[in-house]
Computed example of a mutant assay.
Amino acid sequence: MRTTRIRAALIAAIMTAVSAFAVSAPAGAAVPGTNDFGCKPSAAHPRPLLMLEGFGGNSDAWRFFAPKLKADGYCLFTTNYGEHPLLKALIPNPIEGIVPMQQSAKEIAPFVDRILAATGAAKIDILGHSEGTMMPRWYLEKLGGAAKVQKFVAMTPLWRGTAFFGAAQLRDLLTPLGLAGPVIGLVHGLCGTCTQALTGSDYLNELNADGEAIPGIEHTNIVTRYDELVQPYTSGIMRDGGTNVVLQDVCPNDVSEHIAVAFDPNVLQLVERALDPEHAKPVRCAY
């Protein structure tokens, strides 16, 4: 009985916290300039760009990047993914990336096919932020998505997960005591992504078994030294391929952290350089 009460209290606390976040988040309507299935890629930008945001947000996370990329001639697409059924029933605004990432990856697959069919393109590019870098790896590596993607630009990626204020270490300490399984099981039932994002998770171990870089894909990884959620931030530096960019190596006075990179004009310039290196311009650092 006591265990049942504790479980109920924990569920209520998590739902309350997420609900509070959701109320403050904008509505999840498509960002202007995105999801125009009549858009035809130009010779300058021949591949549609799928933008995948991070945990707990929705497609509104691209409201800063989208207008500028659209003005540059990209066909842009976004989609809300990974909504928890309970939250979806209780909260009007989409809160994404809650369910296990394998499930979210299965949602992404048909959306990519729809983009390709509508635009006539052979491949897409992906711009991901936070979970939007981890989740599509399952699609690329396990669901045949790699053959449909040319460039993968990752902002604050966590290829090797995050320690997240000692959560990964606590899990490892509880394992010999036989306590890690029940705790992980409870958290995973409420937030499948939360346990998968931790360093050393089964999800990441399976993906990294054959390396971090995905053959045939052009990787660019943009990290910030001030990332408070990816711990250490070097988890986003790919060890076996790709181009790794530390934001502060380009703009030393830029203090953008994990969330702020999605609203950072310096990061936008780095993204544009990665997507179109042939027409790359020097980054003009703004503060």
Rank of each mutant, 00 (worst) to 15 (best):
D202F: 08
L204C: 12
E206Q: 15
E206C: 10
E206K: 11
E206S: 11
A209G: 08
A209Y: 05
A209W: 03
D210K: 15
D210L: 13
G211W: 05
E212M: 09
A213L: 03
I214Y: 08
P215C: 10
G216N: 01
I217W: 07
I217M: 11
I217A: 11
E218D: 14
E218M: 09
E218S: 10
H219V: 10
T220C: 06
T220N: 06
N221E: 10
N221K: 07
N221Q: 09
I222R: 03
V223H: 01
T224C: 11
T224N: 05
T224V: 08
R225F: 13
R225Q: 11
R225K: 13
Y226W: 10
E228R: 05
L229G: 07
L229Q: 14
V230K: 00
Q231E: 15
P232H: 08
Y233T: 11
T234D: 07
T234W: 02
S235E: 09
G236Y: 05
G236I: 12
G236D: 12
G236C: 15
G236N: 07
M238T: 03
M238F: 02
R239Q: 13
D240V: 03
D240M: 00
D240F: 02
D240S: 02
G241H: 00
G241V: 05
G241D: 00
G241L: 01
G242M: 04
G242D: 07
G242K: 01
T243Q: 02
V245A: 10
V245W: 06
V245Q: 03
V245F: 00
V246P: 03
Q248K: 00
D249L: 01
V250R: 02
V250K: 04
C251Q: 00
P252E: 11
P252W: 00
P252Q: 02
N253P: 00
D254W: 06
V255H: 10
E257C: 14
E257H: 15
H258Q: 04
I259P: 11
A260F: 13
A260V: 09
V261T: 10
A262E: 14
A262F: 09
F263C: 12
F263K: 10
F263N: 14
P265N: 05
P265C: 09
P265R: 02
N266M: 02
V267T: 08
V267Y: 05
V267H: 06
V267R: 04
L268Q: 07
L270H: 01
L270K: 02
V271D: 03
V271M: 13
E272D: 15
